[in-house]
Design a protein around this nucleic acid. Sequence first.
DNA 1: TATTACATATACAGATCTGTATACTTTCAA
DNA 2: TTGAAAGTATACAGATCTGTATATGTAATA
Lengths: 203, 203
Amino acid sequence: MKRKSKGLSKREQLLNTALELFARQGIHATGIDTIAEQSRVTKKTLYAHFHSKDELVLAVLRHYDGLARNEFMRHVERRGKTPQARLLAIFDVAQRWFQQNNFYGCLFINTIGEYSDADTPIRQICKEYKKLVKGYIRELCEQAGALDPNELAEELALILEGATVTAQVSQNPKTAHIAKRAAKALIDKAIPQTRSTRSAHSQ
Amino acid sequence: MKRKSKGLSKREQLLNTALELFARQGIHATGIDTIAEQSRVTKKTLYAHFHSKDELVLAVLRHYDGLARNEFMRHVERRGKTPQARLLAIFDVAQRWFQQNNFYGCLFINTIGEYSDADTPIRQICKEYKKLVKGYIRELCEQAGALDPNELAEELALILEGATVTAQVSQNPKTAHIAKRAAKALIDKAIPQTRSTRSAHSQ
DNA sequence: TATTACATATACAGATCTGTATACTTTCAA
DNA sequence: TTGAAAGTATACAGATCTGTATATGTAATA
């Protein structure tokens, strides 16, 4: 056992601190010293775990990738019981996210804004994350019986993205509401209606 | 006359260079020295025009704000002749933007990712820009006869945002196509149909 | 108990960053 | 032609950044 108090290894402490700081301040604006101090760890230890800042950045992104996707899907699945309900629940989950006081937009989006080089692995992780989220949405669309699941998933993923960015800029969580409204319209249009949804689809 | 070759004042040269570098690399990653060198201007001259980096950043954002909004509206109005056509033309204009080789996403979004402080003037400029764009879209929605112009404008602005971010991440301009498709569905739903649009709105 | 792995404290090298200072040159208008 | 405005070239101050080095302390294991 090499755990200390709070049950967090040095490595996890560093990842959490770095995640918090990167998300709030951006990556270039966050120094290694600050991360080490705030993690109550020396720079030596930090560099023992991560050989460079770039490596730390990559580790943080991968760490957050798992964390975020997992939690996102978990909440969606708890909040909606049918696939179609889950597609809408996405935006309720988003709203709760936007309301958190440590919401600074999507880390991956913000990171890509700082790294425009097309072939940096940092970009690829961000790209991959978005792809996986869209894949999850597409699964839900398939299960919900959408005529063209991929098309609907593309649209919904795009709306989620727009809601996130708009919430970040406006600092107004009601953005999620707008997104949900738009999503509902598109879902109703894309899924052959049984009695499941109560939308104003005359006839 | 204090113009030099190419008809650009030192100030304009600096603003253009800084804009290009900020957009490509991000703000924190771009040094004053680089901006000065690339503008073929000494640091002394730079600081004679802008008293600090923050001031330069603000000037660049304001400069780009005018430039971008103006060009955006100009293209939309040239490409679409009726208000409703213009609402769709937004996404054609966006597509052309995404295809440019110096497209690095929305400068304002990227900038907000680097400045999370709620009350920094930098944030306010970004926020204001988005508000003005949405205002323009709302005007078009009103002219197009939308039942609830504000609601439709919120949705379309959100979709545009989502398309921009998604194009930035995926580096695939077809995102604009997805956005246009979603927008069309929402527009058709929000505007009482005359014979103007040829959508598959059975009866 | 001795070893090994991991951590600390602290200092430093070398680069880069923002911003200023000094001294010289060009431009143009009164 | 003279004088002010604006620009150049260059150096530097002081802070901060990434990354390394040295020497010491601690905790569990063999």
